[in-house]
Design a protein around this nucleic acid. Structure first.
Length: 369
DNA sequence: CTCTGCCTTAC
DNA sequence: CCAGGTAGGCAGAG
């Protein structure tokens, strides 16, 4: 059920984005990091500087460092710059995030946390118009700064799409308001790659069709878009190019899959070299499953070979289960099968459970029996 | 329709 | 020679 505003007019949606989140958290607990490039890294099991950049602050970005970049490359860009490289500390960031999210949630009619550093808020009922919402956003930025110590960027729009693109428009520490009457203009000027769900591949395809801006996109027929991108994406693009988005702000639903993936100490195609990791992964998945009170019916594995190509295998069980044994057993069988099929050395290994249902809950219980 | 495997996105 | 996790769509087989 969606919230309809008392005005009977458009919704008012905010998108809050915590700035360079992991790196800002690190600055928060160490004042000696101020004014220095800070790079938060995911180090792999390979040791040394093997791994990738997760996030970095704006001082590091000034030297060309970006998320996803190999750590070695970031170090090269920042050599002689008094930069700090830190490993991710998920626990700590989660605790900081929880504080912020609690503040936001308390100020929304409907709330949707999308990730550790992003949330949508529907404020249609508590704000009488966009000016009112702008004042609320200002207050929220103040409160997050004074009580947690972080800056964030907020976008306000008539739906989630506009709000999201608005928060992205000016950062860090931005506040962008796009009134309904301005939404079409705001979005039309953007290049298509700025649209939510339009990544590298989709952008390249659109460009090859001569489509570069959202205005270009809005001229394409829905049939063409569906033909080229499939039903779901085609309709999405057609609406998005017009600033239309009816998605309600709602609490995020139950997890649909739980997975863990790891990089092996060394590339190998021998199963004995993988069993320890496979077991650890199975245990991690199981732990998360139990914590969330869920049962699974499908077990899968994923392999990334040394040439970075990937392959996955999954199997459906006859009954729902929450047994660690089932995860580990089936994962092993699937791994054996995959190794028979290809002897390419494996670099990374993953385990996943899906087809999840809650242990409690009535509709679930019926399906379980 | 169900299941599998692959692809794309994004944080 | 570079992380890890999740979601969702789609195509093809059965």
């Amino acid at each position: 059920m969606s919230i309809s505003s008392s005005r009977g007019k458009s919704r008012i949606v905010m998108h809050v984005d915590l700035d360079y989140f992991y790196a800002q958290c690190e600055e928060l607990r160490r004042n000696d990091l101020k004014d220095r490039p800070v790079v938060v890294c995911v180090y792999s099991a390979r040791g040394g500087d093997s791994g990738a950049v997760s996030t970095c602050n704006y001082k590091a970005r000034a030297y060309g460092v970006k998320a996803g970049m190999p750590i070695v490359q970031a170090k090269r860009l920042l050599r002689e710059q008094d930069a700090v490289f830190l490993p991710v500390d998920e626990q700590y960031y989660t605790s900081v995030s929880d504080m912020v999210m609690a503040i936001l949630r308390a100020n929304a009619d409907a709330f949707e946390q999308v990730s550790i550093d992003e949330a949508y808020m529907d404020v249609s009922m508590r704000c009488k118009d966009f000016d009112d919402a702008t004042r609320l956003a200002s207050r929220l930025k103040d409160e997050v700064r004074t009580s947690v110590g972080l800056t964030c960027s907020i976008g306000i729009g008539m739906n989630k799409l506009i709000a999201k693109m608005a928060s992205d428009y000016r950062k860090p520490d931005g506040l962008t308001v796009v009134r309904p009457e301005d939404a079409k203009d705001f979005i039309s000027r953007m290049s298509v790659g700025k649209l939510l769900w339009v990544g590298k591949k989709t952008e390249a395809t659109l460009n090859s069709m001569g489509i570069y801006t959202v205005a270009d996109l809005a001229k394409v027929s829905i049939d063409t878009l569906i033909k080229e991108f499939g039903r779901k994406m085609g309709i999405y693009l057609y609406n998005a190019s017009r600033g239309i988005d009816e998605e309600p702000v709602k609490e995020s639903a139950m997890a649909k899959q739980i997975s863990r993936i790891t990089t092996l100490k060394r590339n190998t195609s021998a199963i004995e070299d993988m069993l320890d990791d496979l077991n650890t992964l199975s245990m991690d998945v199981h732990k998360s499953l139990v914590e969330q009170g869920l049962l699974f019916r499908s077990v899968g594995i994923m392999l990334v070979y040394e040439d970075l190509s990937m392959r996955s295998r999954a199997r459906m069980l006859k009954h729902y289960s929450n047994s660690m044994d089932d995860i580990a057993r089936y994962a092993r069988v699937l791994l054996e099968e995959a190794l028979e099929e290809s002897s390419k050395p494996v670099r990374r290994l993953g385990v996943k459970v899906s087809d999840l249902v809650s242990v409690k809950g009535q509709e679930t219980l019926q399906r379980f029996m």
